[in-house]
């Protein structure tokens, strides 16, 4: 077999290849599994309450794998980066999930600022106005089978973030919303 000569031209070829690979890596959009459609709506006016009348200027939909959107005090996905607007926007996540094991579940909803969490159309917990990132513990009994949830959130001014996880019964192991377990499947 003929050996590839290692000379200045080979170095140049390697350098070119490295640069091309680096560029392709950089410009390839990050991919995450499509589990939730996150609808982000920029409001024309200042938002101070999750229930206030919306005056939407523009909307975008971002597909995410988990509801883990609280990085660096921002509404930010670990892979996708900043996905919100600069301020004053609503976020809506509507999704279904399958309960494999019936029983008492705990949903941990962390937000900065307000949120409303409902399961099968019934409000489970909420924080209506601004606050620093804080996690609320929301209890709900679920039967086996298909269910739906709705998580509405708003960001007013300053730091932001939204995260949701669940556990089977209080004190159980916590899973991020989007991670399937032997209890729930999204």
């Amino acid at each position: 077999m003929k050996a590839i000569p290692f000379n200045k031209n080979t170095v140049f070829s390697i350098l070119l290849a490295v640069v091309v690979v680096a560029i392709i890596y950089r410009i390839t959009p990050p991919y995450v599994e499509d589990v939730f459609d996150v609808v982000i709506s920029k409001n024309r006016t200042t938002i101070t309450d999750i229930h206030q009348t919306r005056d939407i200027e523009m909307t975008k939909v971002v597909k995410v794998d988990r509801i883990n959107l609280a990085e660096k005090n921002r509404f930010r996905h670990p892979k996708l980066g900043d996905i919100g607007y600069s301020g004053d926007y609503f976020v809506d996540i509507d999704s279904t999930f399958l309960v494999k094991k019936p029983g008492a579940y705990v949903f941990y909803v962390g937000s900065d600022d307000g949120f409303v969490f409902s399961v099968d159309g019934k409000k489970i917990c909420e924080w209506t106005h601004e606050r620093p990132f804080t996690t609320d513990v929301c209890h709900v009994n679920l039967t086996a089978g298909d269910h739906s949830f709705k998580l509405a959130y708003y960001q007013g001014y300053g730091n932001s973030g939204l995260a949701m996880s669940y556990a089977f019964a209080a004190g159980g192991k916590q899973y991020l919303a989007g991670d399937n377990s032997r209890y729930l499947e999204f």
Partner: peptide, 18 residues
């Protein structure tokens, strides 16, 4: 050398692509 010209052509192609 052919290797050099191929390299240089690819490099210029990269400049244009970027």
């Amino acid at each position: 050398r052919k290797h050099l010209w191929i390299n240089l052509s690819l490099y210029v192609a990269l400049v244009i692509a970027v």
